[in-house]
Amino acid sequence: MASVVLSEAEKVYIMHGVQEDLRVDGRGCEDYRCIEVETDVVSNTSGSARVKLGHTDILVGVKAEMGTPKLDRPNEGYLEFFVDCSANATPEFEGRGGEELGTEIANTLYRIFNNESSIDLKLLCINPRENCWVLYVDVLLLECGGNLFDAISVAVKAALFNTRIPKVRVLEEEGGREIELSDDPFDCIRLNVDNVPCIVTLSKIGYRHIVDATLQEEACSLASLLISVTSRGTLTCMKKVGRGSLDPESIFEMMETGKRVGKLLHSSLQTVLDEEEKLGSARKKVGFLG
């Protein structure tokens, strides 16, 4: 991952600041930087979103393709994740440099979506055992400014919210079934994203923990906890990253903070997504040139 080198004194300054609940940029320990979300930015996807969180810049595209259901789940579709770490983000990602991080993020995404309630996969089934929709979720990392996981999960949720899958009908004919695509391009299925979890990363700095760490703060933190929280505050998965250790008591504190912040994150995100939807075609697209 992109990382910065800091001098001892700078680290001490950041650590003391966290202790006093005043971080370098003036935020408190539980404040996020301003998140900018725009959906429907890539026209040739089924759904897409771009999220900017400070200097972190994420683009997510969701593409629905026809496939065959997995053998153990014949009446469900499935999601595939792929994370591409662009060398634009940091020169370290050049060549195969970003592969390891990309796989790590993709695996985390698989884990947080690996439960029945997050997304109704039955909706994606067309023909049990034969056809289903496969949602390819492609994440592109354009810039790293700390707190990648949270930004990516927000972007994935926004992109899934934006996803429109064309409606199809199955026609029974002699000699087999045929799939017919609806003529109306606006005739489509939307996914229910109410239960899609978002990741809240809590980084332990000194005796306290913070959310939404910048690169500099990440360099000061030895251990952090990834918590995926749904909009109701249910914790669906948890992962510790970093080489330091966490004591159980602080893990519980971090979980509580994570749930509280996660709920807020979901409600703010949903408000903005609804607002954007309401604007419809009147919305000015900003994209990459704005």
């Binding site: 996020y32 979300v37 807020l264 703010s268 000015k284 900003v286």
Partner: peptide, 13 residues
């Protein structure tokens, strides 16, 4: 007292 603000991007004038 957490603070999360999500917003739409503003186009540059």
């Amino acid at each position: 007292m957490a603070g999360v603000e999500v917003r739409l991007p503003a186009a540059r004038e």
